[in-house]
Design a protein around this nucleic acid. Structure first.
Length: 425
DNA sequence: TCTGGGGTCCTAGGACCC
DNA sequence: TCTGGGGTCCTAGGACCC
């Protein structure tokens, strides 16, 4: 007779092949076909259906390298549509919040839930229920891993991905060593390329071996992060759930160009556009930036025309989210690093040292500042209502020859009435 | 011809100070 | 031959994540 137990329980809910699942939602014909979604600029493969994985198409691989397999097997290809994925992500997260627990939205397609309020006995059923409800309400299939720590829930999730049920709980499992033994060390959360190399050199090839390594060895040979991973594998929680509302510390907008850019004018348009984007983003989160970094670079994979990469960081006299000021500062930064004679492949803007905007008021705010603030607000509102970049500043340019490639775009926009899918009888 | 974008955290080492 | 010692703060770059 076991009494009702309430051990610590963290669930990791992960959407299966998220971007592919989003495209499939609006295109039932590709439900059983191999499908891939490409990164910005149609550069790399960043989401694959199981059928595509089975063909040997690799994650993160450049599109052109997999093109042969793709054509030969009639793989369906999509350019990424982040407006769509963002919208569906919000629907999934909103659904998860209904389960009355603490939630950390970890990425666009993943969330940690603290399910400690449910008893050990009912936890599997709760997991099943979450999967079913998310699938019913949003159409997105998920995998769920449940365990005592975040790292272990990642492990459980990893195993769940390969299971028909899509659910694995390690709660109540007396000895998890046989399970951890089958998890390769590089599949453990927090262990990347470099750490894998280091662990291999020390005879650690799977999660069980790291878990059972002595404390003295861990302390001597790894930093805080490494120690934390080892502890978490032992079932001792070291990484807390990060509740929503934690504000971000930086904001980056960067893009590769569809066509290489060479002139200052082209780069200026790009930088101005990214700056506008970034200022709009931080305004929507009531943040102000204290410094701006501009960076430009040529293609690192191709040195035929010479490689050049540089960046410039400028501190602002006063933190701001004013588009005009940010664009001006960014362009002046660009002037200091731009060099003629290179074929630029990528550029970006980073706003950092972000802090709360206090509604734009501070000790020194003047009437003029108030006017600028209300101008910014009306730009944001108009752009929100009538689509991005309806109103923008002249320096952002109108030609945009350098704009991204997006050859396989699905044109689905859940926020746009006219592109909602039609349901046929 | 064609190789994404956006984050966080940690650490070594430089600058500066007494 | 041999060029203080120790503290703090900041930043660039690395490693990792999705």
């Amino acid at each position: 007779m076991s009494s009702t137990q309430y051990t610590k329980k963290i669930a990791l809910v992960d959407c299966n092949s998220f971007y592919v699942s989003c495209e499939r939602l609006f295109n039932p014909k590709i439900r059983r076909k191999p499908v891939v979604v490409l990164s910005n600029n149609d550069g790399c493969i960043i989401s694959r259906s199981n059928e595509a994985k089975a063909l040997g198409i690799k994650m993160g691989e450049p599109y052109f390298k997999e093109k042969d397999i793709i054509v030969k097997n009639d793989v369906q290809v999509f350019s990424s549509n982040y407006a769509l994925y963002g919208d569906l992500s919000r629907r999934v997260m909103r659904t998860l919040k209904r389960f009355n627990c603490d939630i950390e939205i970890y990425s666009i397609d993943e969330a940690f839930l603290d399910l400690s309020n449910y008893s050990d006995n009912e936890i599997e059923d709760v997991g099943k229920e979450i999967r079913n409800v998310v699938l019913q309400w949003t159409g997105i299939p998920t995998s769920i891993g449940i365990a005592k720590t975040k790292t272990l829930s990642k492990v459980a999730n990893h195993i769940a991905k390969k299971k028909q049920s899509g659910l694995v709980s390690l709660i109540g499992v007396e000895n998890i060593d046989p399970i951890l033994e089958k998890v390769e060390i590089n599949d453990v959360w927090g262990v990347g390329k470099q750490l894998t190399k280091f662990y291999h050199n020390n005879g650690i090839y799977n999660a069980k071996q790291l878990k059972n390594k002595s404390n003295t060895w861990i302390k001597k040979n790894s930093n805080v992060l490494g120690s934390r991973t080892a502890m978490e594998l032992r079932g001792i929680p070291c990484i807390d759930l990060e509740k929503i509302n934690t504000k971000r510390k930086s904001c980056v907008v960067s893009r590769s160009f569809g066509k290489r850019a060479e002139s200052f004018q082209e780069l200026k348009e790009a930088i101005a556009g990214y700056s506008l984007n970034a200022s709009e983003k931080i305004r929507s989160e009531s943040l102000v930036a204290k410094s701006i970094t501009v960076f430009i670079r040529t293609n690192p994979f191709q040195n035929r025309y010479g490689f050049y990469s540089n960046s410039k960081t400028i501190d602002l006299p006063m933190a701001t989210n004013n588009s005009i000021e940010i664009v001006k500062t960014a362009v002046s930064g660009l002037e200091t690093i731009f060099k003629n004679g290179y074929r630029y492949q990528k550029a970006g803007v980073m706003l950092s040292h972000l802090s709360d905007s206090n509604n734009g008021k501070n000790l020194f705010s003047s009437e003029r500042d108030e006017k600028i603030n209300s101008l910014m607000k009306s730009i944001d509102n108009t752009n929100y209502k009538y689509g991005r970049s309806t109103l923008s500043l002249a320096s952002a340019g109108v030609h945009k020859k350098w704009n991204s490639r997006r050859q396989h775009y699905s044109k689905i926009d859940t926020a746009d009435f006219y592109s909602l899918p039609t349901i046929k009888n």
